[in-house]
Amino acid sequence: MASQMTEMLKGTLEGIVLAVLADRPAYGYEITARLRDEGFTDLVEGTVYALLIRIEQRGFVDVEKVPSEKGPPRKVYSLNANGRAQLTEFWKTWSFLQTRIDRLRDREV
């Protein structure tokens, strides 16, 4: 089941991270920790960092470098208007898929 979860997560992780950032700005490790608190316990930090680079390049987040007590400045990501629009589209797509998947599952029962 772990590999199936990993594959499904790949397709939805961008929307999940955008949803986390919709609550409040955060830096990479903080995002990973929040996701783990939500039950995504097998999530690797490197996966989140790679995703953050992609969503920054796609213009979905604003980035601010904030001094850190330990080491170099942290990049704090906040959702911008493009990111909010992308998140809205993600939720529409998610609802569409969820409805159809639920119908298929209910036929099996």
Rank of each mutant, 00 (worst) to 15 (best):
A2D: 11
S3F: 09
M5K: 15
M5N: 14
E7R: 15
E7C: 08
L9I: 00
L9T: 07
K10H: 00
T12I: 04
T12N: 11
L13W: 00
E14T: 11
E14P: 03
E14D: 06
G15D: 03
G15I: 12
G15S: 02
G15A: 06
I16Q: 00
V20P: 05
L21N: 00
A22C: 05
A22E: 09
A22W: 05
A22F: 07
D23I: 00
Y27F: 14
Y27N: 11
Y27R: 11
Y29F: 04
T32Q: 06
R34N: 10
R34S: 10
L35F: 05
R36G: 15
D37Y: 11
D37A: 12
G39V: 15
G39T: 15
F40I: 09
T41W: 01
G46K: 10
Y49L: 14
L51K: 11
L52K: 07
R54V: 05
I55Q: 07
I55R: 01
I55D: 02
E56I: 07
E56H: 04
Q57T: 03
Q57K: 11
R58E: 10
R58P: 09
G59L: 12
V61H: 07
V61R: 12
K65R: 13
K65I: 04
P67I: 09
S68Y: 03
E69C: 08
K70P: 14
K70S: 14
G71H: 09
P72Q: 13
P73I: 14
P73W: 12
R74S: 13
R74Q: 03
S78F: 00
L79R: 02
A81D: 12
A81Q: 11
A81K: 09
R84M: 13
R84S: 05
R84C: 09
Q86T: 12
T88F: 08
F90H: 06
W91T: 13
W91H: 05
K92A: 14
T93L: 06
F96T: 13
L97E: 01
Q98G: 06
T99K: 12
T99S: 09
T99V: 09
T99P: 04
R100H: 15
D102S: 10
D102I: 14
R105W: 02
D106Y: 03
R107K: 15
V109C: 00
